[in-house]
Simulated assay, not measured.
Amino acid sequence: MNEQTALWNGTAGHAWVDTQEVLDGMFKPMQDLLVEEVPASSATQVLDVGCGTGSTTLAFARRLGGKGRCTGVDISEPMLAAARARAEREGIPADFIQADAQRHAFEPASFDLILSRFGVMFFEDPVQAFANLRRAAKAGARLRLIAWRSPADNPFMTTAERAAAPFLKLPARQPDAPGQFGFADPRRVHRILEESGWADIDLQPVDFTCTLPEKELVRYLTRFGPLGRFLHEVDAHARAHVIETVRAAFEPFVHGAEVRFTAGCWMTSARV
Rank of each mutant, 00 (worst) to 15 (best):
T53Q: 11
V206D: 01
K67P: 13
E3L: 15
P175W: 05
T268Q: 00
A257R: 12
F96D: 02
I114E: 07
L203Y: 04
I97C: 13
L203S: 10
R162K: 13
G65E: 00
L64E: 00
I201L: 03
P252Q: 04
V17T: 06
E161C: 08
L80K: 01
A99R: 04
T209R: 12
D18K: 11
Q98Y: 02
H255D: 10
G52Y: 04
F122A: 08
E214D: 08
P78Q: 04
A129Q: 02
W16P: 06
G66I: 01
V120G: 12
W8L: 08
K169I: 07
W198V: 05
D18H: 13
F111H: 11
A236F: 05
V272I: 15
F111T: 09
P155A: 10
L80R: 01
Q98I: 09
L212A: 00
L64V: 03
P29S: 10
M267K: 14
P213I: 07
A40V: 12
R191N: 14
I97H: 10
A147W: 09
F181D: 01
I114Y: 04
H232M: 10
A109E: 15
A109V: 13
A6R: 14
V246K: 00
E258D: 15
R142C: 09
E233I: 02
A177M: 02
V120K: 08
P213L: 04
A160F: 08
A12T: 12
A263R: 06
A129T: 06
W266Y: 06
I243C: 06
A136L: 05
T158C: 03
A163S: 02
V22Y: 04
